[in-house]
Design a protein around this nucleic acid. Structure first.
Lengths: 121, 121
DNA sequence: AATGGTAATGAAAATCATTTTCATTTGTGC
DNA sequence: GCACAAATGAAAATGATTTTCATTACCATT
């Protein structure tokens, strides 16, 4: 029953614990792994069911999968050159927790991104 | 240039200020309005550009559009029923500003959403 | 090893939201 | 009326995801 393909999981890990199904598929192809796109999707679904990864959505609607418990971080993205800095969000974590409690929400996650122009742009 | 079709906007309002493009289209059809799906999408895009509505994502990736007040706010969204609470994000504003300064970014904006399960779900 | 059954696999087709293309219509100023 | 830009929408294209279905790998039991 467990379709949690270990090769998919390990690829997700190698991708920085954060990638879409298509990206994982392309990554495995490029590395010469023989796998079907269908299997990648099924493995990811299974990993989500088993609560080993969780899933969010990009702005364009594409699903991205992330290892659970992975210290998660946020991004500071340059609108000009696309350069991205990983930043810490302790303040956000607290804020999210507070807001969730205040409204009786449980099992909460969050997304937060900052975008602007970097020094070069 | 302004493609903000007033019929689309008014339908979105009547839908409770919260609906997907497809839903708005079906609603207008059912009410006998003659409009094309393409036009609905274009009108919604335009409304987003004009900051009259903003757009989030359902769990299945479908985009949902909602009327939004002028005050900058964030969202607490229920993964179960889609219920949304507008929340304040003073902490976020400060955090974003700090992070931007720290890395020399200017002209910054940000997005932040919290999602979880509400009391009913 | 042979058998049978169940789960895993993946290619190809189907689905569904969204975008693009392009020919047509509408509106507006001259 | 005439030209020209903008708006419209049907149909095709796109892209992620799911479904179908035939094949294969895996295991237990003879």
């Amino acid at each position: 029953m467990s379709r949690s393909n270990p090769r998919v999981l390990s690829t997700l890990e190698r991708a920085g614990g954060f990638a879409s199904a298509q990206e994982i598929y392309r990554l495995m192809q490029r590395e010469g792994e023989s796998i079907g796109l269908t299997t990648v999707y099924r493995a990811l679904q299974s990993l989500v069911n088993d609560k080993i990864v969780d899933v969010l959505r990009r702005d364009d609607g594409e699903a991205i999968y992330r290892l659970c418990g992975e210290a998660h971080h946020h991004h500071l993205v340059c609108k000009g050159c696309g350069d991205t800095v990983e930043i810490e969000g302790g303040a956000i974590e607290k804020w999210a927790k507070m807001m969730a409690e205040e409204h009786g929400f449980r099992d909460v996650g969050h997304t937060a991104e900052i975008f602007g122009l970097c020094t070069k742009c």
